[in-house]
């Protein structure tokens, strides 16, 4: 089964945020890009597939208004569209989209912040590319912002705002099997555990709402019409996206789930392997390839990306 490989060091440790690891596989160059958020910095690492060679880069959050740029980053994720790859950052101030190497910021969207601070913090969290040209981002108010992304250039526009969630969005995921037969394209999750299932298009259409059960849904995936959701109770639940029928429930963890991932080409949802990273609060976990050959893990306060591969 899996065994631990040499870790990849990162410049600064991972913050305790949901889904605090994003992975982009660059097949032509046999490279994997990783991003891990630390406070207001994004650690970027490009590593060879064996993990032995790597180079670092740090992205400081460059926000619209430089004078107030100390805001914390909530998530960094690569969005893969058929025409281009973008690196999307969400923070307490807004949403930034960069070219995939982090070199050029192509778009900046500021969040509405109230003049006088209220008890509820403002931030964006939950990032997903959907089908041909959309990138969806969640906001603490519960809104889901849909951006229309052209095949090149910076003419990105906010095309729609979806208002179905009442609590802060935690995570979003689009269909990852590549199958075009599935009706549901996107699932959004919030702090109350509510899941909304969407069909994309010129206008997004709500297909179903799957109620929560008093605990936050921190991480979600959508695979061949099945929603896989991880919760604060440590449970993983599998729902049929369109009908909301619960197919399986796993008492998986003894603590809050921070991250969940699926290897789309394995065709299985099965308990394969477990491993305890001693004395580490896991905050990011991602498969490095579609076949689930390798996966990577980050932990709060830990300045490394831990890798596992199949023997």
């Amino acid at each position: 089964m899996y065994h631990k490989e040499k870790s990849i060091p990162i410049k600064s440790s991972a913050s305790a945020l949901y889904n605090n690891l994003s992975v982009l596989r660059i097949a032509p160059r046999c490279l994997t890009y990783f991003t891990v958020v630390h406070a207001n910095v994004v650690n970027m690492v490009s590593a060879s597939w064996d993990g032995l060679n790597y180079s670092h880069r740090q992205l400081q959050s460059k926000e619209g208004n430089v004078a107030t740029s100390s805001s914390l980053i909530m998530q960094a994720a690569w969005c893969v569209l058929p025409s281009r790859d973008l690196l999307v950052l969400t923070s307490q101030k807004g949403i930034q989209m960069y070219e995939s190497d982090g070199s050029i910021m192509v778009y900046w969207h500021a969040l509405d912040t109230p003049e006088t601070p209220t008890a509820k913090a403002v931030f964006a969290q939950g990032i997903s590319a959907v089908r041909e040209k959309h990138i969806c981002v969640g906001v603490s108010s519960g809104s889901v912002l849909v951006f229309d992304v052209p095949s090149k250039g910076s003419n990105i526009t906010l095309s729609e705002v979806l208002e179905e969630h009442k609590e802060a969005i935690t995570d979003m995921a689009s269909e990852c099997s590549g199958s075009l037969e599935c009706i549901a394209d996107l699932v959004s999750a919030d702090d109350s555990g509510l899941l909304c299932v969407w069909k994309s298009g010129e206008d997004f259409q709500l297909l179903n709402k799957i109620p929560g059960f008093d605990t936050s849904c921190s991480s979600v995936k959508l695979w061949k019409g099945t929603v896989i959701a991880g919760y604060g109770t440590g449970q993983i639940r599998l729902y049929e996206a369109v009908t909301g029928i619960l197919h399986a429930e796993v008492n998986a963890h003894a603590r809050w789930i921070y991250s969940l991932d699926i290897a789309p080409f394995t065709g299985l949802i099965e308990h394969m392997y477990n491993e305890c990273v001693t004395d580490t609060q896991i905050c990011g976990a991602k498969f490095c390839d579609g076949d689930g050959y390798a996966f990577a893990v980050t932990g709060y306060d830990l300045s490394e990306i831990i890798r596992y591969t199949q023997a």
Partner: peptide, 16 residues
């Protein structure tokens, strides 16, 4: 385990 959490180790499958 924390209040509200089940001890891990169980998978349950449901019919429609």
């Amino acid at each position: 385990v924390p209040y509200g959490t089940h001890t891990p180790g169980l998978m349950r499958m449901f019919s429609c």
